[in-house]
Amino acid sequence: MSAPARPPRYWYEGQVPWHARLLSELYGGAIALRMRLFRLRLLRRIRIDRPVIVVGNLIAGGSGKTPLAIVLVERLRAAGWNPGIATRGYGRDEAGTPRWVDEATDPALGGDEPVLIARRTGVRVRADADRVAAARALVAAGCDIVVCDDGLQHYRLRRDIEIEVVDGRRRYGNGRLLPAGPLREPAARGDSCDFRVLNVGDDEIEAGFGEWPMRLVADRAQPLAGVRPMALSAFAGKRVHAVAGIGNPERFFDTLRSHDIAVVPHAFADHHRYVAEDLRFGSDLPVLMTEKDAVKCLAFASGRHFSVPVRAELPEAFWVALLDRVAALKPKA
């Protein structure tokens, strides 16, 4: 079941309509049946000949998966691995056609998040609705470990490590399954994951027991029509148009406000496909947007348009624990 373009308010507060509760019960029954078929091995889980790490979440919408996948790839490479990214490439044209994605790929064909990952990391990125086929293609291309950006619910590909990413502010919303709430699976599913990462953003949120805090740090602004980045603090005390087509646009707006930037907010649906008209706001204020939005606006960007990249920071103890687990998966010489 797919999520609506913008989450209903009742996912997080207020009364849930009766028809949404009914559909949620039917959806929950379908999930339970599917899991039972996997447990009975009537549906197969397929193991590829390399370790697989899945970075995902339980709710529909963003939680910080992609920034974590990016830094995970960087850490794996620093530890001597040659990682590749397997992804569905949500919202791309020709979604049924497998595709290699690089920094020059049209986001309409490769998906906004895969193109962003390719631009930031330079690793092999394979977009394919069939995660098993994507993982096999990466292995054939020389990757010795596969990272799935999203995919907790894609059980056909057997995985070695699961990382659940949770939005620290919204958590699991009202705790209901789609479409009555934001959950793709029951919240208890997260207990079976190997690591739970809490995206605390710039909020004063404390991670609970068994949760690893992740902070998304933004301190630069990259001109879309230029080369040299500038400090985000250069916009302090100024008004800007802020553009966000992500799962939780308010998180981006609050990040800018935390730098004393006066925000004129423009929220679009997650994975929105921009046209030049979308960025014409009737004034010549600077336009700041997320990296995910920026990759779709390069063709018509001007000197007023900037992306604000974020980097994920986690405790060093998290990386020690994770990389120890990964090292144990390396084949014996």
Rank of each mutant, 00 (worst) to 15 (best):
A137D: 15
A137M: 11
A137L: 10
L138V: 12
L138M: 08
V139S: 07
A140C: 06
A140Q: 11
A141W: 04
A141I: 12
C143P: 05
D144F: 08
D144I: 13
D144C: 10
I145F: 03
V146K: 00
V147H: 01
C148L: 15
D149R: 01
D149Y: 04
D149V: 15
D150T: 15
G151Y: 04
L152S: 05
L152E: 03
Q153N: 12
Q153E: 13
H154L: 06
Y155A: 06
Y155D: 02
R156N: 03
L157Y: 01
L157C: 04
R159W: 02
D160H: 11
D160T: 08
E162C: 07
E162D: 15
I163A: 03
V165H: 00
V165Y: 00
V166E: 04
V166N: 01
D167I: 13
D167H: 03
G168Y: 06
R169E: 15
R169N: 09
R169G: 05
R170Q: 13
R170I: 14
R171T: 11
Y172P: 01
G173T: 11
G173N: 07
N174E: 13
N174R: 07
N174L: 13
N174H: 09
G175F: 11
G175E: 07
R176D: 13
L178F: 10
P179I: 09
P179T: 07
A180P: 09
P182D: 13
P182T: 13
L183V: 08
R184F: 07
E185K: 11
E185S: 10
A187W: 02
A187C: 07
R189H: 09
G190Q: 06
D191A: 15
S192E: 08
C193Q: 02
C193H: 03
R196L: 07
R196E: 04
V197S: 01
V197R: 00
V197Q: 01
L198C: 05
L198M: 12
L198E: 04
N199M: 07
N199P: 06
N199C: 10
N199D: 08
G201T: 12
G201M: 06
D202V: 15
D202L: 08
D203T: 09
E204R: 00
E204N: 07
E206C: 11
E206V: 15
E206Y: 01
E206P: 02
